[in-house]
Write a protein that binds this DNA or RNA. Structure first.
Lengths: 248, 248
DNA sequence: CGCAGAATTGATACATCTCAAGCTGGGTGG
DNA sequence: CCACCCAGCTTGAGATGTATCAATTCTGCG
């Protein structure tokens, strides 16, 4: 467990990798400059906790690189992941004192943080930020609701397939019209984390991964590298509308 | 099926029942006047569909009275409710053309509607609206995430208890510190709707309702009127943290 | 009265969980 | 360099909670 902490050479906002997708996406040069003054970077090692549910959280942040998870735990230990935070995603809530969920780094993680108070002040004065945050929040709400369908109604196999599609789409970025293409990507989650996300046990996840492999839907190179010989075939396993659900 | 359509005598915003909770909560007299000019009421009978998923939706709206549901349906008919819309809740999304989910009136319903374009314009010019909408959306996102825990990890009995607590709290409004009180309220959902909400079958819902009755946790007067002799006892059945989960 | 939608209840099937054993691969220390 | 270890993963056998299929029984209403 080397005390290696991921570093990020505090780039100026101008060449930030999430410049056009994060909460600051719509800011002009001037606004960016203001943000630049109140921002600071924090890094976390894979596995580290960013905040515990109920803890005071005096900042909000954007994920710059790496992956974090939002999760909830019941008294008896049952755990459910309620969000996957990828680069450009926003964490924290203006106008709230404590974190409602556990936030954990699953990979090495760099976040661009703003102390809550200055950020709230800026939200008042800078409509571009509030607008963008509203848009992002609405997107997340839709995503959460799609996840509710998965959790409530999908079979274990469909759940796994759905998760792989989400990660594969985001990660390998196959063109929308690129049918039947081979896609390769790395799973950033352990079987247990997948289980926590999907509302399953890790054994069931493992069994269904094996089943998908046996059926030729996926291939495994090592435990984490996934090859999908035909992405549409995988899509067909998700239980979702084949036409890919229009979203305006 | 009498063609009775619920009416709402178009009150001015000043004495609207959701004046201080809806998206217009923060508006001043002047802003309210502007809203007044672009708003119109629509009424739906219990059971009617407000929009189908994928349909064009050229308005946004607040629920004034009654209850609506948001739901998703898979090709083979599996259905999952992803939101319960109570008075003051907001429907629709600025900047989106089509509805992402089915919206259905479960009781007679009155909505205060705004055509999308004028509303979007007003959002630009009236920060009070955008601010309030952001706040409401963040609340809904948290609620959706709590529901994910329910769907992914709770047992059938815990799911039922959780739903009853949510409706009972909202409906009968027992004081936060009012421990062990008797609470009485009406279930606005059929067993099937409860099942769709909880990710169960209607038979399982029915069985668990019977079990809760047998165990003295609830009493039924008719099918829909629920009496909870000891609300804390019911809370204890939800699987949630007993201390009621702090939320700042 | 008698029908229709809603709800209950029963018997059985099945998907997933639980408990338990064993495997794999990479790192560590002797 | 090998033996060991350990976290992550796989696989098996059996238990169990919920779904499914099928009757009834309510309840309100024309």
């Amino acid at each position: 467990m080397g005390q290696h902490i991921p570093r990020f050479n505090g780039a100026s906002c101008g060449d930030c990798p999430i410049r056009y997708r994060a909460v600051c996406a719509r800011c002009d040069e001037d606004e960016l400059k203001q943000l630049d003054e109140i921002k600071y970077y924090r890094s976390f090692e894979a596995g580290q906790t960013v905040t515990w549910s109920g803890d005071k959280m005096d900042f909000v942040a954007s994920v710059v690189t790496g992956i974090a998870t939002l999760s909830q735990t019941m008294e008896d230990g049952r755990r459910q992941m309620v969000g996957l935070l990828l680069p450009s995603d926003f964490v924290g809530r203006p106008g709230r004192l404590t974190a409602p969920f556990d936030v954990t780094a699953t990979t090495d993680l760099v976040m661009c943080c703003f102390r809550k108070k200055p950020f709230e002040d800026m939200m008042q004065s800078t409509p571009h930020i509030a607008q963008r945050l509203l848009e992002m929040t609405l997107d997340e709400l839709d995503a959460a609701r799609e996840w509710m369908l998965l959790l409530g109604r999908k079979t274990a196999r469909e759940k796994i397939a759905s998760l792989l599609v989400i990660i594969g789409r985001r990660d390998a970025n196959p063109k929308p019209g690129n049918h039947g293409a081979t896609v390769r990507f790395e799973l950033p989650l352990t079987r247990e984390q997948m289980a926590d996300y999907l509302g399953l046990t890790l054994e069931t996840v493992s069994r269904q991964m094996s089943a998908l492999k046996r059926d030729g839907v996926i291939e495994l190179e090592g435990k984490r590298q996934i090859v999908v010989p035909n992405f549409d075939r995988l899509r067909g396993e998700t239980g979702d509308d084949s036409d890919g659900g229009l979203r305006g």
